[in-house]
Amino acid sequence: MEAEKARLLALCALPAAVTVLVLVAWPIWLTFELSLHRVRLFDILRDRPLAFTTANYERLLGDARFWESLANTGIFVTGSVGLAILWGLGSALLLDRRFPCRAAVRLAVILPWAVPASIGSLVWMFLADGHLGLFNHLLLSIGLIAEPIAFLVHHQFAMPMVILAQAWHAYPFFTVMLLAALQAVPAELHDAARVDGATPLQRFRHITLPALRNTLVVTGFLSVLAAIRDVETILVMTGGGPGRATETLAVRIWNESFRFYDIGFGAAQGVVAFTLSLLLMGFALRRLMRSFWG
């Protein structure tokens, strides 16, 4: 009986094991291997033998662009995740209250989620356009600027613009998760605190925030990882430009591999990104494991 059950469970796990092995583990191993070879895209396509080298890593250490892309990753990730958390928290707190048409409003607020990231980026691109964009029209008409600004080709405004677009796409995830966590807070807690004379701010600090902490940590962490790997928003809106103003590590890997065809050098940066994510995961894995195994 027990043996039959074990066999069935092993069989059930098999497709997932094969998927992870072939489509995740093997590619990661291949990234390491490619990073240690001098390899251009054409070598792959013509099946040429590859020469072993550590030159990719040596080049990386002395490469100013690499450090720049790391800094850009930091700005993009903190900016977009921070904004998305604030946006999500604010909306969850508001949507948790009672008001007319609440269900419809909730649905409307999380609707950006249903828009594909690349499509949302296209819309923001149009809004921020220097010739026909609505933002320029609005800013001009309230007198905040004197001349239209081409936001996405301006080295100072490009990064805030892609951060805004990314946060617009990312915040509904926080809204949904935090709203679910808020609904689990017993109303009696708030009532009791109110009776004891706690101000709204005190109630937020001592009741709401502790109740949300676990959800905030898990969702925040997942979103940081998602933002590190995100490449669609930036690829669509700026391609990493102007110059390299929005070139994050993920975008750099893409550009190096598919625009300059230097697969080996791209892979070396892939190894760095992989190590970076793994380090981050190490911090949070225990906590996530606990929520996974219950």
């Binding site: 990234t31 792959i44 697969i263």
Partner: peptide, 13 residues
């Protein structure tokens, strides 16, 4: 949690 960007190049190969 792994970056999918990382998978693109090796999967391409």
């Amino acid at each position: 949690m792994l970056p999918s960007t990382l998978l693109v190049v090796p999967l391409y190969v």
